[in-house]
């Protein structure tokens, strides 16, 4: 009956509002209510011991003049951008390759997939040990790592965070691209071959355009993942050296659960919500995600 051509078919009952109730209630209790409470807290001074005291705009003015906050936003943006720039080409190429039918492809794909199965915490602990300057990889390969002060210098620490993020998340995006590449109709490649297009031109003029919407999906996931990165920073750098890798999410944690300044932490949280919302809106607008066209044009 779902095949009925009549728009809004008379015999078709739409699910009642009651179906949405559990999800709505869940969302309200665990997202909207806390968000409202955080908004209230951001105008108070609260260390978790006394009752919250009204503090007016104190938290917000402090945030406005806080160099660490500004830097943390910039760092979040930098790490997110690095993530997209590093992961997109690698996962695109791997995904397209894995969509083929080469020998050993299944085995190699399975191996590439492994990092995704590990928890981010385990991955960070592992790399922390591997990158120890005295007993890890740097000690074995000084020609590559110099003195090995990777996590102790600003550029090194940012590089390590980007690398570990890529190491863990590239498999997910590879999987997405693999599925999308598989879905590209073979006739397009056959037609291109008849027109005399080689492998490179086929990739450039058939595969890439067909993967356009997938790229948007993958990029959105990367940006969201990048902005909410926390565990790798907590374990690999703890925001250091100094405040060189204190990204916004980590700064919020630090203010809240290490310094017990929940008012200030709430203000940072709201800034994060605001920034993430703006970024999502911008991405949806720019990519045409809201009016996404079918990927298989011309078929």
């Amino acid at each position: 009956m779902t095949r009925s051509p009549a728009a809004g078919g008379a015999g078709l009952t739409r699910p009642g509002l009651a179906w949405a109730l559990p999800a709505t209630a869940f969302f309200a209790v665990f997202a909207l209510v806390p968000l409202a409470l955080v908004a209230v807290l951001s105008f108070t001074a609260w260390n978790g011991v006394d009752s919250p005291r009204a503090a007016g705009l104190a938290n917000w003015t402090a945030l406005l003049h806080d160099p660490v906050m500004l830097k943390s936003l910039w760092l979040s943006a930098l790490l997110t951008t690095l993530g997209v720039l590093v992961q997109t080409p690698i996962s695109l190429l791997l995904g397209v390759w894995a969509a083929g039918h080469q020998r050993h492809r299944a085995i190699l794909s399975a191996i590439y997939f492994v990092p995704l199965l590990l928890s981010a915490t385990a991955v960070s602990v592992l790399w922390r040990a591997l990158l120890d300057p005295n007993f890890g990889l740097p000690a074995q390969a000084p020609w590559l790592f110099g003195d090995g002060n990777l996590l102790g210098s600003r550029d090194g620490a940012i590089g390590v965070l980007a690398f570990v993020g890529a190491w863990q998340w590239t498999p997910l995006h590879t999987l997405i691209y693999q599925g999308a590449a598989r879905a590209i109709p073979q006739v397009l490649y056959q037609a291109a071959a008849i027109d005399g297009a080689g492998r490179l031109r086929q990739f450039w003029h058939v595969t890439l355009p067909q993967l356009r919407t997938t790229m948007v999906t993958s990029t959105v996931l990367m940006v969201v993942g990048g902005l909410t990165t926390f565990d790798t920073v907590l374990i690999l750098t703890q925001g250091g050296p100094g405040t060189e890798t204190t990204i916004s999410a980590y700064y919020m944690y630090e203010q809240g659960f290490k310094s017990f300044d929940f008012g200030q932490a709430s203000a940072i949280a709201l800034v994060l919500v605001l920034v993430a919302t703006l970024v999502s809106l911008a991405m949806v607008r720019l990519s045409g995600y809201d009016a996404m066209r079918a990927g298989t044009e011309g078929i």
Partner: peptide
């Protein structure tokens, strides 16, 4: 040295330096 900010006590890094004679 130059790499102390990449070394931790809590994960056994700096105690190992002492124990191994480095």
């Amino acid at each position: 040295g130059t790499t102390y900010d990449s070394v931790k006590f809590t994960d056994g890094g700096s105690p190992a330096l002492l124990a191994k004679g480095k």
